[in-house]
Amino acid sequence: MKPAPFSYVRPATIDEALATLAADPHAKVLAGGQSLVPLLSMRLAQPSTLVDINGLSELAFVRTDESGVRIGALARHRQVEDDGDAWRAQPLLRQALRLVAHPTIRNRGTTLGSVVHADPAAEMPAVAVLLGARVVAASVDGRREIDAADLFVGPLESALRSDELALEMVVPANPPRTGTAIDEIARRHGDFALCGVAAVVSVGENGAIETVRASYLAVAPTPHVLDLSEAFVDGTASDRNLDAAAEIASGALDPDADIHGTADYRRHLSGVLTRRVVRDAYTRATAPDAQGAR
């Protein structure tokens, strides 16, 4: 359980980091290291160079304004989770981060790192797609923005090129009369989920449901977003409507079995969780949090 040999670079500037990435197509960026280091130790990943960006303190930011939350590449999960402004602007961030592993891991792991690691069982990729987040990527050739919807190519595979460094993620603010919720079933507290669902529910001024969207993790190779609005045409979160939404989800998903759960069980959970999170998100949409989260 010792990594194979690699070169280690700790750039002092973003440009230096980008130059190193450009020079070595087998280089890998090290930020929080909570996913990468175990892969290195088990020799499942054998990059030739590690580009440690922990010296780039200018990337350790969480900034919130009217339009949303910007999360820098070195912002730890814990920093995002604890940020009151970010929570008020987009409560799903904190709701989801509380399900990411354990506090000790959240203290080191970075939110953007988790997104670009593209683990289909991770919470933040599913949240990024659901919320329409964008990732700003840089290379020696310049910068580009990637919609989260285009970011996830396959399990542990993102659209980020090997010469690119993800600098920040821009997460839109929660619109008015919109509620969010996330829940998951994991074998142990903090484990990767067997199935997880995040939902965003928007209601009209009369309180009637207008749109319901849900994002599914751990039941597809990449985060899977479904529009469930059709189940709520009468605008209510009735049991019948929730059942219909659960049925849409179970029907649309084709999860794989693994050693922790059968495909049937995961599909069943996607329905159970759909009911739960849509109901919770709807409740929040109609009765906003007293402390100011939208």
């Binding site: 175990p38 088990m42 074998r187 142990r188 507290h189 903090g190 990767f192 050693i259 922790h260």
Partner: peptide, 24 residues
Amino acid sequence: MVYDEHGQLLNASFMDFLMPYVTE
């Protein structure tokens, strides 16, 4: 211990061998 039919142990790590945490 999850062995496949080839005799490979599929969960030879603490990520997949579910020793209970204090929370369990």
